[in-house]
């Protein structure tokens, strides 16, 4: 819990300045190594002594993975080590994919955005307070979920895809990247692989101890956004309890291509409702070919929440998610 200790427990610190050196270190130390980018997720774990890595590999000095560039296909590539405030301010992002600008701008607080990275934002762990408080739950390797007992406090937990664990993914940028069909570039000493943003995030059914496909020894180096959705119509909205610091209760990111008054194609994703951000393919299919109006919005909203299963204290998330999806389809914030 949030006790203030003198300092973090000791670890060995490496500060490589190239990707090659970073990968060599991650390969050498595998499971005992912890990647440190901005540290805004990491330091809580270490200070609270609930994760005790022996080796910390600080990648903040690796310039190769920092910055935003145009790609030859008309899209952009964002280095995983790019600071969130750089993402917010970057004209290329703002011009082509303002939905990502908006998503990055509502993360946490100005100081956190000035240090946290995009790679760290998508790789961050869940905020389930039992787990983060050091309770030996399923996700921590134990055999109980403390958030899903009769007396549990689970206002902010999942309404979809629970499998023993009912925690949610709290990232604000993740749904925007899924809506934009981004590709995650992952490297290890073995080589490079590219994973669709949609597949990068995983739920407890696949692996209850991780939130992403990243394995020990791997480094997320870049996020590529294809030209496909540049210039489309965008929608992002985040609901949180107070306007600074707070994680999303539910957020939604959506892109639409509308022609002749009809939705030609769309991609819609929500987060903080399951252990992974969810792309709503059934909604996308249901609204295709329909006008972007109240009726279509209603249809999409209802479709979005099909199959939702509330816990004791989070039923409110269902209408909240429905309404956010409706607003996204309707395309205005009223």
């Amino acid at each position: 819990m949030a006790l203030i200790h003198d300092v973090m427990p000791a670890f060995e610190l490496f500060q490589p300045v190239t990707v090659a050196d970073t990968l060599a270190l991650l390969d050498k130390y595998k499971k005992s190594a912890w990647v440190l980018a901005g540290g805004m997720d990491t330091f809580d774990w270490l200070k609270d002594r609930n994760k005790r890595p022996e080796i910390v590999v600080d990648i903040s000095g690796v310039k190769e993975i920092r910055g935003v560039q145009a790609t030859s296909d008309g899209g952009i590539e964002i280095g995983a080590g790019t600071i969130l405030s750089e993402v917010v301010q970057h004209p290329l992002v703002k011009d082509k994919y303002p939905i990502l600008t908006q998503a990055a701008e509502v993360v946490a607080s100005p100081q956190i955005r000035a240090q946290g990275t995009l790679g760290g934002n998508v790789s961050q762990d869940t905020r389930c307070w039992y787990y983060r408080g050091g309770w030996a739950c399923y996700r921590a390797g134990g055999n109980i979920c403390y958030a899903d007992t009769p007396s549990a406090i689970n206002r902010e937990h999942a309404i979809f895809d629970a499998d023993r664990c009912v925690a949610v993914n709290p990232s604000d940028t993740a749904p925007a990247l899924i809506a934009l069909d981004a590709k995650m570039v992952i490297r290890s000493v073995e080589g490079e692989r590219m994973v669709d943003a949609e597949k990068f995030f995983i739920g407890p059914a696949l692996d209850i101890t991780r939130m992403t496909v990243l394995q020990p020894g791997e480094l997320l180096t870049a996020i590529r956004i294809p030209a496909t959705w540049a210039g489309a119509s965008f929608y992002f909205e985040k609901v949180r309890e107070r306007q600074v610091w707070d994680f999303p209760i539910v957020n939604v990111a959506a892109v639409f291509v509308v022609s002749d008054g009809k939705i030609e194609r769309s991609r819609i994703a929500v987060n903080a409702v399951a252990a992974h951000p969810m792309r709503l393919t059934s909604v996308e299919a249901a609204i295709a070919g329909k006008p972007r109006n109240e009726e279509t919005a209603k249809l999409g909203g209802e479709r979005a929440i099909q199959g939702a299963k509330p816990l004791a204290h989070n039923e409110y998330k269902i209408p909240l998610m429905r309404n956010l999806v409706k607003r996204a389809i309707r395309g205005q914030t009223a």
Binding site: L13, Q15, D58, Q111, I112, Q115
Partner: peptide, 13 residues
């Protein structure tokens, strides 16, 4: 020149 939380910055960085 950028405001940062010094409680959450490693001095070595």
């Amino acid at each position: 020149d950028v405001p940062r939380y010094s409680c959450s910055v490693l001095t070595h960085t």
